[in-house]
Amino acid sequence: MSLQPDQAIEVFYSYAHEDEKMRDKLENHLTLLRRQGVITEWYDRKIGAGKEWHNEIDTHLDSSQIILLLISANFIASDYCWDVEVKRAMERHEAKEARVIPIILDSVDWESAPFGRIQALPKDAKPVKKWRNHNDAFLSIAQGIRIAIKDLIENS
């Protein structure tokens, strides 16, 4: 699966900064999709100097076709993640403008959250930190995202 650069699927990472190392690992595991031109990725650390961070986040939340919610206790506790990013992500998901994919990083009560009815990754929504080998969890996530992208492309 390879797309033209202007056809690449934009992926937005919504995460708590305390989980940045896990976000970095996930980004590494999605490198092949990026190298193949299938995805472009965006997260708040890509905001350039002198730009208004709130506007940049809103712009990318509104333009991304896939929004990854990196779920942990830190994420659930983050007012910004919850009040701004989850709210907008779910609006776009329900309007079928974007696909929200919860990525379960750690054990946390998330099933009753607004995104609790959405199929989560990795496999069986087993938290990444519960896997003996985290790379196996990230492989499961990367494969799940690849399948979601294929579905988006075929149904667009």
Rank of each mutant, 00 (worst) to 15 (best):
L32A: 12
Y80W: 15
E52W: 01
H29A: 00
E97V: 04
R92P: 06
L69N: 02
W42F: 13
D109H: 10
L33N: 10
W110N: 02
W82D: 08
R34F: 12
L32V: 13
E97K: 15
K21L: 10
W82L: 09
E85K: 09
K21N: 13
Y43G: 09
R99Y: 07
R23H: 03
L68G: 01
W53C: 02
I67P: 00
M22Y: 13
A49Q: 04
A98T: 14
R88C: 06
R34N: 09
A120N: 04
E111Y: 10
P114H: 07
N28R: 14
H29D: 01
D62L: 10
H54N: 12
L33Q: 11
L105E: 04
K25A: 09
A89C: 05
I47H: 00
K25H: 07
A16K: 13
K129S: 15
G116A: 11
R99H: 09
S64W: 04
S107T: 15
D24G: 09
Y43R: 15
V128D: 03
T59N: 12
A98S: 15
G50Y: 01
L68K: 05
S63T: 14
L105T: 11
H17V: 10
L26Q: 01
A73Y: 06
K25M: 11
R117G: 15
P127D: 07
